[in-house]
């Protein structure tokens, strides 16, 4: 095969991947439009778009519903899905493990413990939840630091980080169970609700925080894409090609933890996005992180927004927590993936 043929084949594949990402993005915009029209208050599609385009008085009920409730919820769905997907793809990349995600590495368990601590022993949850957010964020970072610290003792390798992550996950899960045992039924209810995850608490302030985090970390992730590709050949190969393996691993873990913490402290634990979004994307686009990372962000956003839209309409007016819906969608998909994945797609 001549060099020209290889180059043109590569260019074609690249073009196709960009087209697919563009197509997925267009699908996300379409879903956003549909989600904006879904809700318990009878508002027509035209009224929704008139409101968004500024054609309605800012003080009308419709304007309040669209601007204060629906749009922050939708944007949070997009940003949180993208962030959790990116965090999962980064963790799977740096650890070279298809099961790595913020949940399997103890990050989400730590957030749950932080929130439980605030709800059961603190006083923050009735005061607007700031203590819960702060605690969840803090404990997520503590868990990430603990995983790093434990792994460093035995040398930063994928195996040590995963083992440390699993240990941390069990520790924080046990601590959360212990707190639930101590708490009264109302507080335990609140913890359980928090652990289901919900986009219903989204406001423009929380959306802004997540947007800043995603906006700041996404370019950094993209910059490390080539190193992640090299890393997939193994630590030795990557080191021989000049990739600072440990730095990438520590930086990637810190970035993924920060993204996860920034999202789940506002939404509660939303499962499976971080695990399945990178897998879906890898099946569609392949394992090249230059395409995998942006693709995962779009797929994560699509899955989370889709799950939330289904969750708030399937039994309306009752809303099913989005954490449950993502698990409902994620588990069958994960089993499907497990049973039918193409050879060597990972």
């Amino acid at each position: 095969m001549s060099e020209t043929t290889i180059r043109s084949g590569y260019a074609k594949r690249t073009h196709t991947r960009i087209l697919i990402i563009g197509g997925l993005f267009a699908l996300l915009i379409l879903l956003t439009g549909v989600a904006a029209t879904l809700g318990s208050y009878s508002i027509s599609v035209i009224e929704v778009f008139e409101t968004i385009l500024g054609g309605r008085g800012a003080d009308s009920d419709i304007s309040t519903i669209v601007w204060n409730y629906r749009l922050p919820r939708i944007l949070m769905g997009i940003l949180a899905g993208a962030a959790l997907g990116l965090a999962g793809a980064m963790m799977q990349g740096i650890l070279r493990n298809p099961l790595a995600s913020p949940f399997t590495l103890g990050i989400a368990s730590a957030a749950s413990f932080g929130a439980s601590l605030a709800i059961i022993l603190g006083a923050g949850f009735a005061a607007g939840g700031s203590l819960i957010i702060g605690n969840a964020f803090l404990f997520t970072l503590i868990a990430a630091a603990a995983v790093y610290g434990l792994a460093q003792i035995r040398g930063i390798t994928p195996e040590t980080m995963i083992m440390a992550g699993i240990a941390i996950m069990y520790l924080f899960s046990a601590l959360t169970s212990f707190l639930q045992y101590l708490g009264d039924s109302e507080d335990v209810n609140a913890v359980v609700f928090w652990m289901f995850g919900s986009l219903g608490r989204s406001t423009w302030e929380t959306v802004s925080v997540v947007a800043i985090l995603v906006g700041a970390l996404f370019p950094l992730f993209l910059l490390s894409a080539r190193s992640l590709n090299t890393l997939s050949a193994g630590d030795e190969a990557a080191k021989s090609l000049g990739v600072p393996v440990e730095q990438i691993r520590i930086g990637g873990m810190a970035g993924a933890s920060l993204l996860t913490a920034g999202v789940i402290c506002f939404t509660g634990t939303i499962g499976f996005i971080g695990l399945v979004a990178p897998h879906i994307t890898r099946m569609i686009l392949g394992g090249d992180h230059r395409f995998l990372l942006p693709g995962t962000a779009v797929v994560g956003a699509l899955v989370l927004l889709g799950a939330d839209s289904i969750g708030r309409t399937i039994m309306a007016p009752q809303i099913l927590p989005v954490g449950i819906m993502t698990a409902f969608l994620g588990v069958p998909f994960f089993i499907f993936l497990f049973l039918s994945r193409r050879r060597n797609y990972w």
Partner: peptide
């Protein structure tokens, strides 16, 4: 007629229902 037991609903649903009275229960 909409839900049974307890159910999580959206703020906009409460606005749509426009109740005459809001009755809140608290364990505090």
């Amino acid at each position: 007629g909409h839900t049974t037991g307890y159910a999580d609903v959206e703020n906009e649903w409460v606005m749509h229902q426009n109740p005459d009275v809001i009755l809140i229960w608290s364990g505090k």
